[in-house]
Every structure is written in C-alpha cells, then in structure tokens.
C-alpha cells in the first residue's frame, strides 16, 4: 500500500509538471506609425516578450518615418529643398544606404519605380495625411512635370554626398520606405531573439518563422470586393507586398484617381487593380509591387525578371489573375470562377 502511494504521488507530480508550461500563443498589437496602421503578431509564451517586440517595431518604424517623411518637415524635405537649388548635400552612412538601395531598385525597374517624382505625387494631393478630394490637377501642370523627367538616374550618390543634375528631382520614398522600415524592424526582432512574428504595416508585411506547428497564413485582399481573393502560407522569412488602386484614392466625376502615379504619363497607372509580390526583402518587394503595377499586363514579366522577383500575382481591370508559375504553385485562390493565367516560366 505504501509503495503504491509513493508511486502515485510521483506520477501525480510528474503529470502536474508536464502541464505547467503554457503553450506559446500569438500576441497581437496594433499601433499607428508610418502614417498607417501597423499590426505586430508575435508567437511567444509570455506577453512581456511580445510587448518588447512591439516596442522594438514601433521604435524602428517611427525612426524611418521621421527620417524620410515626404511632406512634414524632415531630413528628407531638407535634402529636397537643396536638390531643387542644384546644391550638393552632405549625408550620413544610413542615408546613403537607404538612397543607394532605392536607386538600384529604380534602375532594375526601368525607372517605373521612381522615387524622384515627389512633385507629381504632391501635385495629385497625396502629400497629405488625409485623402485628397479632387478635382485632379490641371493637365498642363502634369505635362510640365512629366516633361522634366526627374528620375533616380539624375542622382549622383557618394557615401557622403548626394546631388542631382535635374532640379525637378524631389525624392518621395512612399513606395520603398515602408518596406525598408519593415526590414529594419525584422532584423532588430531577430537580434532580440524573436523567431516567429509578422510585421504588417498598412497591409504589407514580412513574416518570419511560423505559428508553431502551422505556417503563418496570410489572406490577400480582393481588389474590388470585401474579403479575400487568395491566401499564402509563408515559408521561413518572406515579405508579401501588394500595391492596389483601392489603397489611397479619390473619386471625382465618377472616375477613380489612385496614388500609384505612372512617371511616364503623370497620371495614376491604369489597367491594373493590384499586384502582389513575394520576396525575401520587404524593401525590394515594396518597390517591385509598385513597379509591376505600373508595368501592367504587357511589361510586368520583363520588369519582374529584371528585379529578381519570381513570385508575382497581377490582377487586371477585368479581374483576370496573372501569375508566375512559382506563385501559382503555392497560392490558394479563395474565390469561385477565377479567371487565371499562368504566364512566363522561361526564366
């Protein structure tokens, strides 16, 4: 009897210790920064680690926001003022790295990703925290800016200075800064020992690790209806970026004007509803989503190849879904009767 009681006691203790460690859970936090809503999801056992991770993300994103804000007084607006006066501007290493990466991506995109058209974006009214209400700017004003053809090719960059051969260059990293900031935030999270997390800033995200036993599942918004058009399970460390005509826009006289300006025409790019890109680097994915949106159904494959992007989904205005074979191999379409075209594959 005594022996049995002892065994029972031992077994009971064992049983109790086996369940004392709680399972890791997804902790979510939402914050406003970078002019948008940022969701941080962290898989961890305790809330304190998750809170620390959120603070790291907030700090990193806020840093990029103040450094590269395109319309509020910032180091970037100071650089822009001096570039307009054809001055050479002294810059530090972090500024150099940021602009250098953007310039490289612009070159690879045939300047479709063009962070030098800040004046055009401002003319369209998108240099504001609020959505513009129209009317669209005058045709002549748009034409005048397009004719000056500002681009990153006009920029001369050294590790300590920046100058421009074209005074029309006004830098606006709206299609790059968010990706760059997410990359920085993820690197900081990894350094802090966070292995499983998603940083989603205004719909664009980078996910590392997994949700425990299952991968992170990401829904991709339908460009014209409520709900999700497709979903992706992330692998390891990936960024998922979408540029859509529904993100920032205004309607005027029954016509929609969105925020993705084609630098060749000076008008919002037409023909595409959304482009989704998967790539390791959030900064690259950010620039590529914009460039491929502008490239449209005719050019996107070529630009994607140049930018080293394998996984692309482009939805045109007829809701035809174009995909690379690599994207088709892993995406789950979540709607009925989708019109899908798998193209390319000659890479």
């Amino acid at each position: 009897m005594r022996l049995r009681r002892l065994t029972l006691l031992l077994l009971t203790t064992l049983a109790l210790t086996a369940c004392s460690e709680p399972l890791p859970q997804v902790h979510k936090a939402r914050l406003f920064t970078l002019g948008t809503l940022v969701d941080v999801s962290v898989l961890d056992r305790d809330e304190a680690t998750a809170q620390k991770a959120t603070n790291i993300v907030e700090t990193e994103l806020a840093l990029i926001n103040t450094q590269w804000h395109a319309w509020r007084d910032s180091p970037l607006t100071k650089i822009n003022q001096q570039l307009a006066q054809r001055k050479k501007v002294a810059i530090d290493t972090s500024t150099y790295r940021f602009i250098k990466q953007a310039q490289t991506l612009a070159t690879m995109s045939n300047q479709l990703f063009n962070p030098a058209i800040g004046s055009l974006v401002g003319l369209w009214g998108f240099h504001s925290d609020d959505t513009p209400v129209g009317p669209p700017p005058a045709e002549a004003a748009i034409e005048a800016l397009v004719k000056e053809a500002p681009s990153m090719a006009n920029i001369t960059l050294t590790p300590t200075t920046i100058s421009s051969s074209n005074p029309a260059v006004q830098l606006d990293f709206g299609a790059f800064g968010k990706g760059y900031a997410i990359d920085r935030a993820i690197e900081k999270l990894k350094l802090a020992g966070v292995e499983n997390a998603i940083v989603n800033a205004g719909g664009d995200l980078r996910a590392i690790g997994s949700k425990g036993e299952h991968p992170w599942r990401i829904g991709i918004r339908h460009p014209t209806e409520a709900g999700v058009i497709a979903s992706i399970e992330t692998r390891g460390d990936e960024s998922l970026f979408t540029s859509g005509n529904y993100e920032r826009f205004f309607d005027f006289d029954g016509k929609r004007y969105h925020h993705i300006i084609d630098p060749r025409s000076g008008y919002p790019a037409t023909g595409t509803l959304s482009v989704t890109v998967i790539h390791h680097s959030a900064a690259t994915a950010d620039a590529a989503a914009t460039a491929l949106f502008i490239a449209g159904t005719q050019q996107w494959q070529q630009i994607a190849r140049q930018m080293g992007i394998d996984e692309v989904m482009l939805i045109d205005r007829d809701l035809t879904i174009y995909m690379t074979p690599q994207m088709a191999a892993r995406i789950h379409i979540e709607i009925d009767d989708a019109n899908i075209r798998i193209v390319g594959g000659q890479t």
Partner: peptide
C-alpha cells in the same frame, strides 16, 4: 476591428 472568433488568416495583405 471585429474580434471574437479566430480569424481564418493570421494577417491580411492589401
């Protein structure tokens, strides 16, 4: 935001 039930997706890309 609507909470309450487990959403189908961990995050939404848009």
């Amino acid at each position: 935001a609507v909470l309450g039930e487990t959403p189908r997706f961990d995050s939404i890309n848009f």
